[in-house]
Amino acid sequence: MTVHHHLDDSTLLRYASGDLDDAFSTIVASHLAVCEDCRQALRVAEDIGGGLLDTEAPAPLAADALDRIMSGVTAKPLRTARPSQRTESSADVPIPLRRFIGDRLDGISWTTVAPGIRRHRISLDTPSSLYLLHIGPGKAVPEHGHGGAEMTLILSGAYRDALGRFGPGDIADLDEHVEHQPRVEPDEPCICVVATEAQTRFKGFFSRLLQPLVRI
């Protein structure tokens, strides 16, 4: 998979330091699962944590701390079977999404929310939301700015907007205030997963009319 659009460096640092909520950590992990470049970049970010941990002043442990741990480590650690790549050729869902939607994109149940736009919500206990969209070929999503951060990871098909073409594995890691109007390429539908920090504000009058219907 050739990925052209990657994570913002500030997002990588937030992921490495554990600052993303479940909606965003899931979508970021899903991109990382398919993007070797970003996994490499993440290692540098995690090294920062390792370096800082190593140079922390040690805090005195409770008197029984050593006994407590040593009494728990009696059995030799088991060599867990190295998980093989698990690339059953049929699976086309990134690993971190599989526990929500299964292994295959064609197994997802959709709800139509507007002509040509279908949605599957993933319910999480966070203020941010995470959902999948199935957008028909050639379909445009109304131009919108963002009330907060929004990330879109393409799972199949492609769309284009002012920032370029986004195909499978690409992630649009958008800041607040960025306005864009994605249009799905004409040949096939686009399936993507979207994490939004706050309700997206649609711009135009008709778009605003659409908003209660789409609620994205």
Partner: peptide, 12 residues
Amino acid sequence: QPYEDLDGLELA
């Protein structure tokens, strides 16, 4: 969990 999902992948 998302972090742990990636652990195995890294290794493989």
